[in-house]
Design a protein around this nucleic acid. Structure first.
Lengths: 113, 113
DNA sequence: CCAACAGTCAAGCAACCGCTTTAGTGTTTA
DNA sequence: TAAACACTAAAGCGGTTGCTTGACTGTTGG
């Protein structure tokens, strides 16, 4: 019985959740080209700057981006290490599946050689 | 100005959202070992069968799993193709970032050879 | 045949999300 | 120094999510 209630929350939860919003993915895409300020990022969207900043906060909490403030402008950059666990999880699934598939092929080969 | 409001919803949205829940990830993990029925899957969790089935519905809607019913039991299996787009998106980000990093290195090499 | 079984459906509910609006704080620039 | 700028913080709101409960439909083993 796997107990997983809702403790401090798995980082993986936050990364996948952050990526589930197209606006947030857009911001990460924009930022993987190079750093940008909140206002610069906001220029690409119809929503309020406020909303954009809230999205950026989610991204930062997930570890996907970092930010530092100089003067009155806060600059955001991607933190690509944060994608590692997500990528690894997906790879593991694919690997597990292929293992399963190979086993099935072996079985079929045994049945009808 | 990228317009992305909320149309029929990008498949990528649904895949990432589906993976953002630890229970759902657990079910996919279990299923990538081999197919299982709803009740079998439910045995690993403290929540109701009803809740488990709802999670499985989300997974199925995202395309990550398929199911077919024989008699009174519905059997679920993974659909690993569905992970492709998510994996590709992540890979693209990593690639874009490395390109950026390499460019920075070139620049630094130019500055202080 | 009928009781246990495997799942389905719908209602209800608390918590959370994505967004806007409003009202700030500190920073620059003309 | 005053107006424009780049955020920041908080409240509020409608919609969605993750559950539970309860009632039901079809299937199957004894």
């Amino acid at each position: 019985m796997l107990e997983q209630s809702t403790p401090p929350q798995d980082p993986l939860d936050r990364v996948f959740a952050a990526l589930s919003d197209p606006a947030r993915r857009g911001m990460v895409e924009r930022l993987s080209v190079g750093p940008a300020s909140a206002t610069e990022l906001a220029a690409d969207y119809t929503m309020t700057l406020s909303a954009v900043v809230q999205h950026l906060k989610v991204l930062e909490l997930s570890g996907l981006v970092t930010s530092h403030k100089t003067g009155r402008v806060r600059t955001f950059s991607v933190e690509p290490e944060a994608l590692g666990p997500a990528q690894r999880w997906i790879d593991d699934r694919k690997r597990a599946w292929h293992r399963d598939l190979d086993r099935l092929e072996d079985l079929l080969r045994q049945q009808s050689p």
